[in-house]
Structure formats: structure tokens, C-alpha cells
Design a binder for these strands. Structure first.
Length: 492
RNA sequence: GCACCGGUGGCGAAGUGGCUAACGCGCUGGUCUGCAAAACCAGUAUUCGCGGGUUCAAUUCCCGCCCGGUGCUCCA
């Protein structure tokens, strides 16, 4: 199926096809590794993940590069404050970042590119610009990009800079620049700061140059799609376009994909508002990784998502419904006769699911198609009218669904335990919700032993004892369900 | 201030110029169950921020207003 996607550059929904006919070359702006990632960061990474999973589901190969910004002002500031070399400081947050991606079932990009490992690529690019008089060196040794040399500046963010003139009043600390809009390609070191000694002088890269250099290095001078959060559109992506296209005289990225910010409880997420959450904060509060993933991907990427704890609870229930359904489907005895009406519904749901995703990644509609079928199939299971073939077809759809949404497999307890161990190591046990500790205090074996005891009690109709065990487990966040097929249990 | 995006049931949210306005969660009643849970059935917005306009017909297009968000500065 052809995937159609909104392109920020053209403001149109366009077909997405690999330019080289082989693999779709994608560059996605990754994290600056100076702290733990928050849910806003992960909404963006999750939607890029949805994009690549939808492409893969449709048989499109993806070559996805993500950068790690491991040198910048904040990193230098924080590392200095922590008394650590910047490499050591960034390593720890980079590792945490990938652990978080795993927790959220985000697929790894094909290529991870660290800024500090590509300094020479950046220097070469700056030299290339300098050769065309598009980069210049200021008195302090910093290099700037000359915006006046790129008339298309502003085409991505739809800003018109033609009327801007440089007035007489120029910022004192920017007197070195030819124009106030010119941005840094290379920053000369201040005393005591970390720097690289290079052909263009001592210093460290500006933020924008790393993405241009690394994208070209791995994807070529022109590639298919560039992704990031909406805030990056200006100035970051605009600057990338300016420096890349003026260096190569080729289109940098054909398609630009921007994910909108989320709100938390209806407000912008910020530390001062007290509504700032890292992924780890939520795990320690006892929220499931799968529910977080499902919530953050529930609203299509171009739409603002309002993150609330009520919403998170709702998604926890939604994931549970799907998992229960998935398991139930496997355990039934199929009917001999094919259910034609159900077969038609399955077909319809499948069409709806695939069409919704292909239509600018409408995750909300894709989910709805599956939930609609879940209800119908549950009813058919109640009536005992699902054939083997019906079941196979439904399982195919669930499998496609999960290739994109990745929530059916239950690894939540594993991630909760991982977060708990991390909190222990970091001395953050005070941030762990009591329910989390209680729930993880019981091993699967202990739970199953209690269930066996309860089954025995029920057999002899000692319901008081049976209910007592069930309640004890419930207090520790373990839910029991009696069914014809036996007792199921799950962690709340 | 300028620019852009959004405002749909208790909450989140999809969608469309005209079929009963998806879906998830919640709530109420019922079926099932030793009791629960799960699952199913029924109910839960005469209506899509407010006002005006275009149209045979608008939640959907246009204008104004109000509210929320984002960008213009580091930010996913």
C-alpha cells in the first residue's frame, strides 16, 4: 500500500517512496544526552518508530540514522558541575536513553551517529562552505554561516526574512557576526573549555552542523526524509537546509516530518509547572511501559496529545483488553463451520487498519478498526462460532497490528523491575510507589503456589479461604480471573 | 505583538458538505459466575467553543470573537 505523509516543506500530503528505489533513507534528530528523557521526547521518538514500522509492514526497507548530540553547551555545563569528563557524563545518559527506548519497544535505527565521532566530517563541510564564501571566521576563531548567501532561508518554517535588515544596534556579544541571523558552525573555545584542534582552528561544533555532516555521511547529499520534534523546524532544520543545500547545490531532504508537542494535564510540560515527567518517573509510580507507549502513540503525530494520568489508566485498560483477547483467541476450541459474517468483518477491519496507517499515519483510526473487530470476535467466541480459518485471519491482523503498536507481548513486569533496580542503585527508592514494591515482591512461582492453594480450597467449596487468597493477591496488585480454561492471573 | 495549529459525550480522541458522529476508558442496568473478574448485550453527545455568513444541506467551507497550544530564543 502506498504510504502518504504530510510534508512540512510543501505543506502537502505526499506519497513516500525511496528515491533510490531500494531503501527509504531517513535521518531523525536524536537526543542531546545531558539528562534522562522525558515523555515529550519519547512521543517524538515513538512516532518516528511508528513511521518506520509502518514502512516495514508495507515492505519498504528503511535506512534510519539517528544522531546522538554528545557535545553542546548544556553538556559542558552539567559535566563540569558534576566534575566529570564530558565523555563519561554523556555515556551514562546515552545508555539510559537506549534503555528507555527498549522499555518502550522502540526499534533501533540502523545507524547511530555520535557528534564527537564525526568532527572531521563537520570540518570538511565548513571548509566546503568557506570555499564558497558562505562561511566566515570571526575574530575569536568561531565560524558562522552567512545567511545572506542562501536566499531560500525560511522555506521550511515559512518565515520571510527578506525584509530583515541589520540595524545599527547589534548585540554586544555578537559584534563578530556579519548579520544577527548568521548562526554558529564552529565555536571557538572559551578558557578551560573542551575543544578539538582542527584545520579550521580550535573549537567544537555548532549544533546544526553535526546533523548536516552526519546525514550526508550515511545517507548521501540528498535523501528521503528528515524527522524531528516540531520545535526543531526553526531554527535547527532551517539551518541544516541552509548549510547543506548551499554546500551541495542539491536538495537536502525531500520530505520533512515533524511531531507535535504534547501537553501534560492541559498545560505545557515544564519543571516549573510541576508536570514534568521522565519515563522513569512514570515507571516508578507503577505505570506500565506498554500503556505509556500506547498512550503516546494513540493520537496521530500531527495532533497535540494531552497526557493525563486518567488517560494513562485508560490505555492500561485498553492494552489489557487486547492482551486478554489475544490469549483467549489462542485458547478456544474452533467451530467446524466458517463464520462468513465474521470473515467479512475481519476483512473490513484489516482494510481499515492498513488504510488508516497509510493515510498519514492515522494511529487513532487504525486502533479503532482493531477494537471494533475485537468486540465482534469476542461475541463470536461467546457464541462459539469462530472457525479455525476465522481465527487464523484474526491472528494475522493482530500480528500486523502489533508490528506497529508493539504492546501485545507483556514485558511490563520486567521493565518495572528494571526501573526498581535502577532506583535502588541511584538512591531513589523514595520515589518508588509502594504498590510497585509490593507487586514485585512476589515471584511468579509464589503467585502460582497461592493460586494452587486457592484452587484446592475452591474444590472443597471453602470459598472463604479462596476469597482470602484472592484478596491478599489483589492487595499486592495481582488480579485473578477464573475461567473455563482455568485460572488466569495478571499484574495490575 | 506577528505567524501557525486546535477547541467533538464524564475523560482521551477519530471523522465527514447530506447514511444511526468511530474507537478506547469510565458510568448505569442485564447475561454469565459460589462470589468476583473477563466477555457479551442494552443505555450513556437531538449534537461537534460562541456569534454570523455561504449552501437545498455545515460539526465539516468563509468571517469575527473567546479559550488552549506552538513558533518568533535553548527545547522532542
Amino acid at each position: 500500500m502506498t504510504i502518504r505523509l504530510f510534508n512540512t516543506l510543501t505543506s502537502n500530503i505526499e506519497e513516500l517512496r525511496p528515491l533510490d528505489g531500494e531503501a527509504l533513507r531517513v535521518y531523525a534528530c536524536g537526543p542531546t544526552v545531558y539528562d534522562y528523557g522525558h515523555i515529550g521526547n519519547f512521543r517524538t521518538f515513538l512516532h518516528v518508530d511508528i513511521l518506520r514500522r509502518v514502512l516495514e509492514l508495507n515492505g519498504v526497507k528503511v535506512k534510519h540514522v539517528m544522531n546522538i548530540t554528545d557535545v553542546d553547551d548544556k553538556i559542558i555545563r552539567n559535566a563540569t558541575a558534576a566534575g566529570l569528563p564530558i565523555g563519561e557524563y554523556t555515556h551514562r545518559y546515552e545508555r539510559a536513553f537506549f534503555e528507555d527506548l527498549d522499555t518502550l519497544s522502540v526499534e533501533r535505527p540502523e545507524i547511530i551517529a555520535r557528534a564527537t565521532e564525526h568532527i572531521s566530517d563537520m570540518v570538511l563541510l565548513i571548509q566546503r562552505l568557506a570555499a564558497q564564501n558562505l562561511a566566515y571566521k570571526a575574530e575569536d576563531g568561531s565560524w558562522y554561516f552567512r545567511i545572506a548567501g542562501f536566499p531560500e532561508y525560511g522555506k521550511l518554517s515559512k518565515k520571510d526574512f527578506s525584509g530583515i535588515t541589520d540595524g545599527a544596534r547589534v548585540d554586544v556579544d555578537e559584534y563578530d557576526k556579519d548579520s544577527a541571523r548568521d548562526f554558529a558552525l564552529w565555536k571557538a573555545p572559551k578558557p578551560g573549555e573542551y575543544f578539538w584542534e582542527t584545520e579550521i582552528g580550535a573549537g567544537r561544533p555548532g549544533w546544526h552542523i553535526e546533523c548536516s555532516a552526519m546525514a550526508m555521511r550515511y545517507l548521501g547529499e540528498s535523501f528521503d526524509l528528515h524527522a524531528g520534534g516540531e520545535d526543531l523546524m526553526f531554527p535547527h532544520h532551517e539551518n541544516e537546509i541552509a548549510q547543506s543545500e548551499s554546500a551541495t547545490h542539491k536538495v537536502f531532504a525531500r520530505h520533512w516530518f515533524h511531531v507535535r508537542f504534547l501537553l501534560v494535564e492541559g498545560r505545557k510540560m515544564s519543571k516549573s509547572e510541576g508536570n514534568f515527567y521522565t519515563l522513569r518517573d512514570l515507571l516508578l509510580k507503577g505505570h506500565k511501559a506498554s500503556a505509556i507507549r500506547f498512550l503516546l502513540t494513540s493520537v496521530p503525530y500531527r495532533q497535540q496529545l494531552n497526557f493525563t494520568f486518567e488517560g494513562l489508566a485508560a490505555e492500561t485498560g485498553a492494552v489489557e483488553r487486547l492482551r486478554t483477547f489475544h490469549q483467549r483467541l489462542q485458547s478456544i476450541t474452533p467451530a467446524a463451520q466458517q463464520n462468513e459474517q465474521l470473515a467479512a468483518e475481519i476483512h473490513r477491519a484489516s482494510q481499515g487498519f492498513h488504510a488508516a496507517l497509510a493515510n498519514d499515519l492515522n494511529t487513532a483510526e487504525a486502533r479503532a478498526a482493531v477494537f471494533e473487530l475485537v468486540r465482534q470476535a469476542n461475541a463470536a467466541m461467546d457464541a462459539g462460532t469462530i472457525s479455525l480459518e476465522n481465527r487464523t485471519e484474526i491472528q494475522k491482523l493482530l500480528s500486523d497490528f502489533d508490528k506497529v503498536f508493539a504492546v501485545l507481548e507483556d514485558r511490563d513486569a520486567e521493565w518495572a523491575r528494571f526501573a526498581l533496580e535502577w532506583a535502588e542503585r541511584e538512591g531513589r527508592l523514595d520515589q518508588v510507589a509502594p504498590e510497585v514494591k509490593a507487586q514485585l515482591s512476589l515471584s511468579d512461582g509464589q503467585i502460582e503456589a497461592l493460586i494452587a492453594e486457592r484452587n484446592q480450597a475452591r474444590r472443597v467449596r471453602n470459598f472463604a479461604r479462596a476469597d482470602q487468597i484472592r484478596n491478599e493477591l489483589l492487595e499486592k496488585g495481582i488480579i485473578l480471573e477464573d475461567s473455563k480454561e482455568g485460572v488466569r492471573w495478571k499484574r495490575k
